[in-house]
Amino acid sequence: MKKVEIFDPAMCCSTGVCGPVVDPELTRIASAVYSLEKKGFTITRYNLTNDPGAFVENGTVHQALAEKGPEALPVVLVDGEIVKMAEYPTNEELAEWFGTTPAELQEKPRVRVSVNFGN
C-alpha cells in the first residue's frame, strides 16, 4: 500500500480550512484526505506551524526547502519520494496512487453542533 505525506505551508490550523475566507483548494484536499483516512489508507498532512519537526526530520523535504524556500510548499511525497511541489495533488492523482476513484474522495467530515438556548 502506498504512503502519501503532504507537507503544508504554515497555516492557522491543521487543515487550513478555518478563518473568514477559506481557500476551496484546501477544502478539497481536506475532504480527500479525510475520505482516504476513513477508508484506511496511509496519508498524513504536516503543517509547518504545528509540526515543524517533521520538516526538519524528513531529509527529502528539508533539502527541498533549503533549495527552493517556502515557495516549494506544499511538498507531496509518495513512498518517500517527491511527486509534487508547490501544489496539492489532484483528486485524480490521489485516486490513482491509492487505487480508488476520484468520486470516493469527496466525503466531507461531519461535525455535530449542539446549541444551548439557556432554557
Rank of each mutant, 00 (worst) to 15 (best):
K2E: 08
V4F: 00
V4Q: 00
I6K: 01
F7V: 03
F7H: 03
F7K: 02
D8K: 02
P9T: 05
P9C: 06
A10T: 05
M11P: 00
C12E: 13
C12W: 02
C12D: 14
C12Q: 09
C13E: 06
C13V: 05
V17M: 09
V17N: 04
V17H: 01
C18R: 00
C18F: 01
V22T: 05
V22N: 05
V22E: 02
P24E: 05
P24M: 02
E25K: 08
T27K: 02
I29L: 10
S31M: 15
A32R: 01
Y34D: 09
Y34R: 09
S35N: 10
L36V: 12
L36C: 09
E37F: 01
E37A: 11
E37S: 10
K38L: 12
K39R: 14
G40W: 07
G40C: 11
G40M: 08
G40T: 07
F41Q: 07
F41I: 01
T44M: 14
T44H: 12
R45D: 00
R45M: 07
R45H: 02
R45K: 15
N47D: 08
T49V: 09
T49E: 06
N50C: 07
A54L: 05
A54H: 03
F55W: 01
V56F: 12
V56A: 13
E57R: 10
E57H: 02
N58G: 10
N58T: 14
G59N: 13
G59S: 12
G59P: 04
T60I: 15
H62Q: 15
H62A: 15
A64S: 12
L65M: 13
A66L: 11
A66N: 06
P70Y: 11
E71V: 14
E71D: 12
L73F: 06
L73I: 02
L73P: 03
V75N: 03
V76A: 10
L77P: 07
V78W: 02
D79Q: 04
G80V: 13
G80C: 14
I82A: 08
K84E: 15
M85N: 03
M85C: 10
M85K: 11
A86M: 07
A86D: 13
A86Y: 05
A86Q: 14
T90P: 03
T90R: 01
E92H: 13
E92A: 15
E93K: 04
L94F: 11
A95S: 13
F98Y: 10
E104F: 01
Q106D: 04
E107N: 10
P109G: 09
R110M: 14
R110P: 00
V111E: 03
V111M: 11
R112S: 09
V113T: 07
S114Y: 10
S114D: 03
N116Y: 09
G118C: 04
N119H: 00
N119F: 11
N119S: 12
